[in-house]
């Protein structure tokens, strides 16, 4: 499609000034009328609920007994593109010993939430807050699962209830290929 010939015709100087002024005045008038409209907030609650995915601060969910849902299978560690998740498995407890995330490396992409098959890790709507340089940026389970903003320190409830029989099978699976969960 060839563009219209008129677009290449140059207006005169004063005509140009008139056009721009009239545009600006009409815009100002419309903005003035906004005073009489009802105010629309920046991000109202209904807008927030319309989202289907969040990419805010990470949270580890808890099960009904109040402990973390995570079984330490290491899928999120395998999938993370920036290698910021560090899981240490406790053989005696047969559960997660330590779960550390380097918040300065995390890109909040959502692949770990997608990878977890038991809804153990989730992105919340909370925004990761800035901090001074000397604070500890390698956060552990106490911040990820039991910080104050998650139900006053009790943690987010997971959508999935894990069967105790499945738990042994999950851990066997992990113990078999321990050491193969690192990124290539």
């Amino acid at each position: 499609m060839i563009l219209k010939r008129e677009l290449y015709q140059r207006h005169g100087y004063f005509k140009g000034i008139l056009i721009v002024l009239s545009f600006q005045v009409s815009r100002l008038f419309k903005l003035f009328l906004n005073i009489f409209k009802k105010g629309e907030g920046r991000l109202t609650v209904s807008e927030d609920q319309k989202r289907s995915q969040y990419k805010g601060m990470l949270a580890l969910t808890v099960n009904k007994q109040g402990e973390i849902q995570c079984t330490g299978c290491g899928l999120c560690q395998a999938v993370c593109p920036s290698d910021c998740i560090d899981i240490q498995f406790d053989k005696k407890k047969k559960g997660v010993g330590a779960f550390n995330i380097d918040l300065l490396r995390c890109v909040f992409c959502g692949l770990c939430e997608e990878a977890c098959p038991i809804d153990g890790i989730r992105h919340t709507a909370e925004i990761p807050s800035p901090g001074h340089f000397e604070q500890n940026w390698n956060v552990g389970i106490s911040t990820l699962a039991f910080r104050k903003s998650l139900n006053d320190g009790k943690g987010l409830l997971s959508k999935y209830t894990l069967d105790p029989k499945d738990l042994d099978q999950e851990n066997e699976h992990f113990l078999e290929d321990e050491g193969q969960t690192s990124n290539a």
Partner: peptide, 29 residues
């Protein structure tokens, strides 16, 4: 933002389709 949580770096697609489906009311918006 209402589809994938952030205006930058959406990572919308996956090999074989998309990451998830549209939320309610997105088409009208």
């Amino acid at each position: 933002t209402s589809y994938c949580g952030g205006s930058f770096n959406p990572s919308l697609t996956r090999v074989g389709g998309m990451s998830h489906d549209l939320p309610l009311g997105w088409v009208n918006d």
